[in-house]
Structures are given as C-alpha cells and as structure tokens.
Design a protein around this nucleic acid. Structure first.
Lengths: 207, 207, 207, 207
DNA sequence: TATGAATGAGAATTCATTCAT
DNA sequence: TATGAATGAATTCTCATTCAT
C-alpha cells in the first residue's frame, strides 16, 4: 500500500502546521522576536527542531508571516466594523467591540502585534508601519465621513485617527494586563466609546 | 538632560563614561536592544571594548539604567509642566509642549523609550510598566483635579489618562517620522492640545 | 555502460534503481560529493526520499559504488584498447580514442572520477588510489612490452605511466571544458597520441 | 600603563595568525574543505573557536585565501625557474626541481592545491581554474620559445603544456605518497626532466 | 514497494564577557 | 585606567537517515 497522499495525511500535515504556528505565536507573543528561540518554539509545539524547518523556511520569515496574518486579521475585524455601520457612534462602538473581542479571544494575537514593535525582526519595520498606516487610514475614513456630515467638530482627522489608534492600544494593553480583565470588559468598552466620541468632538444634538 | 553622572565635578573622569552612555542611547535607539551590540556602542564612542566593562557591569544593566534615566527625564519634564499650571488647558498645553520639545531636542531619548518595548531586555518589563504607570498617574492627577473643579465631564479618568499617553505617543512617533517634522511642529502641538481637551471632555464655558 | 544491475531480466524492478543511479552520477558529477544532497538526487530521479533508502544503504555507499563501477568501466575500456593491439602506437591510439569516446558519450562518468578526488567521501581515498594504480599499471604494462621490443627508449616505465595518466586526464578535462569540444576532438586525439609517443620515447624507425 | 599596542602585541598577533593559518593548511590538506570543520582547525591550533572568527571572517574565505596564497607561491617558484634559464632543458630541470623542493618542504601546500579540486569550496572553481591556467601558460611560454628556436618538434604547445602540468602533478603526488620518497627524490627529478624533454620532442643535436 | 513527515546530530557563526598586559 | 585578544555558550540552520503508513 504505497502511502496515500492527499488523504488524511494532508489534513494531518496542515493540522500540525497550524499547531506549530499557534505555538510560535504564543512564544513570540510572550518573549518577543529575539528572545524567542526556535528551540523554544519547537519545544512548545513538542516536535523536533528539524520539523520546524520542514514547515517553515526560517524564524524571521515565520515571524513576518505571523505578524502579517495577525495584523490582517485584526485590521479586517476593525475595518469591517467601521464599514458596516453608518453613524459615527455606531462605528466606534462596533470597532471597539471588535477589537476587544479579538483581544479576549486571541490575546496572543494582540500581544504579537504589540511585541512586533521596534527592534524586532530586522525586516519587520516596513510591514509594521504599513499595518499601523492601514489602521489609521481606516479610522480616518470614518472620521472624514462624520466630518462631512457635520457630526464631529472641524479638526485634523489624520491626527485624531493616530490618537485613536494609540489610545485604544494603550487601554487594551492595560486591560489585558489587569487581573479582573473580564469583569471590566463591558465598562472598558463603554469608556473607550465615550472617550472616542469626545476625542472626535462628536456633536450630540445635530438639531 | 539625562546621564550626567551626578552634578558638576569629576567631569574629566566621567567624560568617557558620558560619551559611552550617549553613544549607547543613540545605538539602542536606532537598533533596539538586541540588534545593538556592545561593539556598536564602543565603536560609536570610539573606545575599546574593554573600556565598556570598566564602566558598566554589562549590556543589560546599562540599557536598564539608560531607560530608567531617560524615562525619569521625560517624566519629570511632563510632570513639571502639569504641576506648574493650574488650569487644565494650560497644563495640557505645557505638557504637550514639553514632550514635543524633548522629542525634538533629544529624539534618541524618545526613540529609546519606544524601542524599550516588549521583547527588549529580558528584565525591562517591570521597569517599563512602572514608567508607563507613572506617566499615566501624572495625567490622571491632572484630570482628577479638573474633574473636581468640574472643568471636564464626569469620566473614568484612569482610562482617559491611558488614552492620552497612548495617543500622544502615537502622534509624536508619526511626527518624528515625518520629513517635514519641523514645519508641522506648531500645528501638531495645537492639534494635540485640542484633541486632549476634547478627549477629556473639557467644558468650555464653566459659567 | 555501467550501472545496469547485472544483465537482462528484472528490468522493470530495477528501473527505479537504475534511474536513481544515473541521477546520482549526474548530480555527484556536477556538484561533488558533499554539495550533492540526497534530496538533489531523488528530485533529479523524481522519486521520494524514502525510496532512496529502500535501494541504497546510504549516500556514501552509493557514491563509492558508483565510483567503483565508473572507474571499472573506464578502466576496462582503456585496458581493452591496450590489450587488443600489439604495436605501441596502435595501443596508444586505441586507448586515447577509447578514453575520449567515453568522455564524450558519458561525460558524467569522467566528471565523477575527477570530482571523486581528495576530500570527497571519507572512505574513498583507498578506492581512488586503487583505481589510479590500476590505470597506471595498465599503461605500464604496455610500456614494458614496448620497451622489451625496443620500440621505446630505456626509461622508468612506472613514471612514464604515471605521467601518461596525469597528462591525458588534464588534457581531457580541458577538452571537455572547451565550448568547441566537438570540433577539436579529432585534433585532440592526434595531439595526445603524438604526445604519448614522444613522452614514451617511441623510436620511429627501428630499422 | 594603558596597554602598548603595535609593540610586541602586534608581532604576537601576527604570529598567532600565521600559526592558525598553518594549522588550517594542514587540516584542509588532510581532510579537504568540507570534511575539515572549523573545530578541527581551532583544535589543531589549540585556540577557542571564537579566536578563529577573530582572525578570519569565515571558513570559506580562509580557504580561498589559503589556496590563492599557496597557488601563487608554487606558481612563482615554477615561473621563476622557467624565466631565469634560457635553454629548454635547463628551464625544465629548474622548474621540476623547484616543484619538488616545494613539495618536500611544504607538503601541505601541494596537498592543499590537490584537494582544492572540484567540489571543494563553492566559490573556488574559478580561482582553481585561473591557477591551472597560469601554470599552463607558464609552461606554454617556455615551449613556444623553444619551438621558435627550433629546439623542439613542431606541436600544439598548449596541449603539451597541459600534459606537462598534469603529468608532473601525478608523479609528484605518487612521489609524496611513497614511503621512500626522500631516496627516490633525485631519480624522480631526473625521470621527470627526461620525460619532459621527450614529451616536448626535444631535438638533441640541433647541429 | 513507496512515500514523505519527522528526527536530531552536527556545522557555522555571533557576541557578551573576561583578563593579561 | 585602558586595551583588545581570547573565550565559549548559545543560536540558527542543514541534511542524512528513520519509520509509520
């Protein structure tokens, strides 16, 4: 019986690949790019070191890939939330909610984006910059639309978008660090939404 | 200005030490903790590698020390600005101005604080957390005072403080990355102040 | 032609084996022992890596085997040419012709013998030495016969034999490297024969 | 006393460098490029592995350098012998003598050139080809001069030069392998010279 | 027979750190 | 004080080889 490929083997391989990637996300998220050794990753995934190189070309490529995938995932979640609502408050709430959901369901994902900062993988800088830029642009689009509808005060929407990105990151980072994260969750979302509305200069009664 | 030994005398003796610390700040700020080698630092300072270990116990200790000193410096600048004013708008403007000034006069200081993120020196996490905490507390103090005076809307001042810290960092990071940083400077300060006032829910006419 | 199992039957069974051996010769000849990986060989032969180890015990054994087979093949061709003629010039011409033929029909065979030099497979040294020794002995036999017949000048035939082996290898190597190898072929054979005759001190008119 | 550089230190460093290079030549000569590990080299030189990389950028660069140096040395010895004589027999004798001398005083040098064959360092091919080419050209120059003076028979001097290079290498290789190398030395030189004269078709009595 | 996922020993290279001078 | 040669632990990555299917 000459070894059936693309049968169950295929699925098993994919499963292992995925398992290794998840292990890698965890290790990277916890230790950062440099401190995380390939040995850390394979021992987390409980495979031999050669297996790593069977699935991935090298540590840096994997990290970049993971970062990109992760960034795209979060970006998509937030973008989707912004696009599928029309009023600015609704957009803000949906986006914040989406971000918080991801942060709670996949904390490692968010951690990875945070550790993927300066001084990580040598070739990550541009990728990181692109990701931040896209995030900022998504927010700015929503702000511009609100501005046109005169729902928010006149302002430099680019800067407000930057501020929102930075502010939400910081708050979520602290939220995840907090021991009572789960209980604070709802309040935190409400706080962030109100804060965002204020920061954007939302005009409550457009009479 | 940070890293000037203690005060005035023994300037000659510390000349080399100071040179190395400044070199280290530059190199760390540019490359991040891991990518910056001790060789990079000593060659930037134009001394031999042995000299490094005469003045400092090791790379990590130096980095932590530098981070702490640098963090204290920025913290002090912002704190001072917040303390020496009484109205919230004045505080905000002074603090933002102070931050921007430091960012322009000593960009490496700010860079260092940014690269000193997750996954830098293994033992930095707590130190970094402390620094951020202090920064947040400083802002929160100002917000609480304003809240008591009913100059800002009721809110969770802790979260607003976190947001301010994250927002300003993000904006200043982009400002420093911009090629026309110098020209945008004044406008950026104004934007940040207005943004801060809005985010804090500043009540314009407390009649 | 080397590496055709034994003779005639079990052709089907050995088809894969043969394909792999031919692939191996090509790859070894092109890259040398160390640089040639088992993966290179199986991918050239279009089989899986496990198949390699079903047919051969390991890389080194295969290389040694191939070298031996290849050496025996060339040796036999040259030996045959030397034995089946009686006059020294005829022997020389036939042997050179045979060598050149092999070099053109099976360049990989010759390449393999050349790359199988020092520093190839750890255990190859003796085998290589044996092969060279046999080649030298074959030539020496012919020289001794000619010497007895007083067709060549008195000389240390061992050294002349060594010289012939080294000289022909070098010339054929350059010939194969040359882009116009095919055109030069006839002239090269003539040159080598004349050279051999001179080197052996062939006495033209033993009147 | 702040460490006097360029004093004795300099000399010591150069001495060590040289010692390491000699150790490397020995190891490379014995094992070939691939089988020789950096660990082999440093243990032969009795230093730590880091020391290797303090003196040399990497294994391949060192090998190439060694090969080139070694090749230049032998080439120069032979070239010099060929140039400083006028009659072809004198040139031949001087060159052979020079080669044999090098082979006996610095056997590793010659070994290195021999192991530096195909399949050695990836980047060595061209260098090796250049070296062989120069050697061949040197012999061809001598042959051409002799041909002009009608001291040798008409012939393709390029091929004769290739033959001489290959023949001498082979003979010297066997000579070095022989246990009674030293005793055979003089006879071997005489044999090689006579062989060379015959191979070149030297015309004894140019009356 | 045939496959290819999995293994792990071993090689090259880096870099923080030490120490004789 | 200052130097820089020397060290070796630690890391990344390769590749021959095994083995369950």
């Amino acid at each position: 019986m000459p070894y059936r490929s693309t049968d169950k083997t295929r699925q098993k391989k994919d499963a292992k690949r995925t398992a290794m990637m998840q292990a890698a996300v965890r290790v990277f998220a916890q230790k950062g790019y440099h401190a995380a050794t390939v040995r850390d990753i394979v021992s987390e995934a409980d495979v031999a070191i050669g297996t790593f190189y069977f699935y991935f070309p090298d540590k840096e490529t994997l990290f970049n890939h993971l970062f990109e995938e992760t960034a795209a995932f979060l970006l998509q979640a937030i973008d989707q939330a912004l696009i599928s609502r029309s009023s600015f408050p609704a957009q803000l709430e949906a986006a914040v909610q989406a971000y918080v959901n991801v942060a709670f369901y996949e904390p490692a994902v968010v951690q990875l984006l945070l550790v993927g900062g300066m001084g990580s993988a040598p070739s990550l800088s541009e990728r990181r910059a692109e990701y931040r830029e896209k995030l900022i642009r998504a927010w700015q689009r929503a702000l511009n639309a609100a501005l046109e509808r005169q729902q928010i005060e006149p302002q430099n929407t680019r800067r407000t978008a930057e501020a929102l990105v930075g502010a939400l990151d910081e708050i979520i980072f602290h939220l995840l660090s907090s021991p009572q994260a789960e209980q604070e969750r709802t309040a935190a979302v409400r706080d962030m939404v109100q804060l965002g509305l204020r920061a954007a200069g939302y005009l409550y009664a457009p009479s």
